[in-house]
Design a protein around this nucleic acid. Structure first.
Lengths: 108, 108
DNA sequence: CAATTAGCCTAGACAATCTAGGTGAAACGC
DNA sequence: GCGTTTCACCTAGATTGTCTAGGCTAATTG
């Protein structure tokens, strides 16, 4: 119910991850992350759109205009090959770091 | 071996956590986090000292000048009552968010 | 006594997020 | 048919946190 801001630096990872299931438009990406996290994570539009732009610049995702399920014009993003590689990287880094933080929390 | 930068926003939590074991000076805090994370997390001094200052301003930690194990002058920080409360909060938030991110990574 | 280490500190750059707006068009209520 | 809500995208600017890259002093080491 209460919304938590994201951990800085994890947004790209989350976006890449949900796009791995197939192309989605921006709004849907935010909804998907919100739902999958059981409403814990809220992606603000002011964070999302600049992030999508950055990721596109880096060649991780590719946009294409289309129609949303609700009949509106929407920009669908899909993962590029580079994006898939990046997803693997960021996932590994997340696992490493989350584990490391867990270690500190447990043993300090 | 390779150093990873911290996840933005987790530094306070880590510092509070290691101070929960008793007062430490700045340098020792960084070493402790590095060691407990099995060298995965590296706290740069340029991040640490400003963070300590902020946390002190917020009343979470308290400094006291003393002597380090190596006989040098050093500033020892200890948790305040507020700091202990903050530790509990940040820990819960971390758990919630880390779990939520895990959910997304698993099920997207 | 020179060089290294321990320990603290700061200014400035940089990056990511959030706030708080705005736009246009489709759908919905009446 | 007309106003309101919803969908969907976008942006400027402020804020925050970290990093880079220094500098300082005093004690230890060689």
């Amino acid at each position: 119910m209460e919304k938590t801001e994201l951990l800085s630096g994890t947004l790209d990872l989350l976006v890449l991850r949900v796009l791995h299931g197939g192309p989605l438009h921006g709004f849907a990406i935010a909804e998907r992350i919100h739902a999958l996290s059981r409403d814990v994570l809220t992606v603000e539009e002011g964070s999302l759109y600049p992030a999508l732009y950055r990721m596109q610049e880096k060649g991780w995702i590719e946009p294409e205009w289309g129609q949303s399920e609700k009949g509106r014009r929407a920009k669908f993003y899909s993962l590029t090959k580079e994006g898939r590689r990046q997803l693997t990287n960021e996932r590994q880094t997340w696992d490493r770091v989350a584990l490391a933080i867990g270690d500190v929390l447990r043993n300090a």
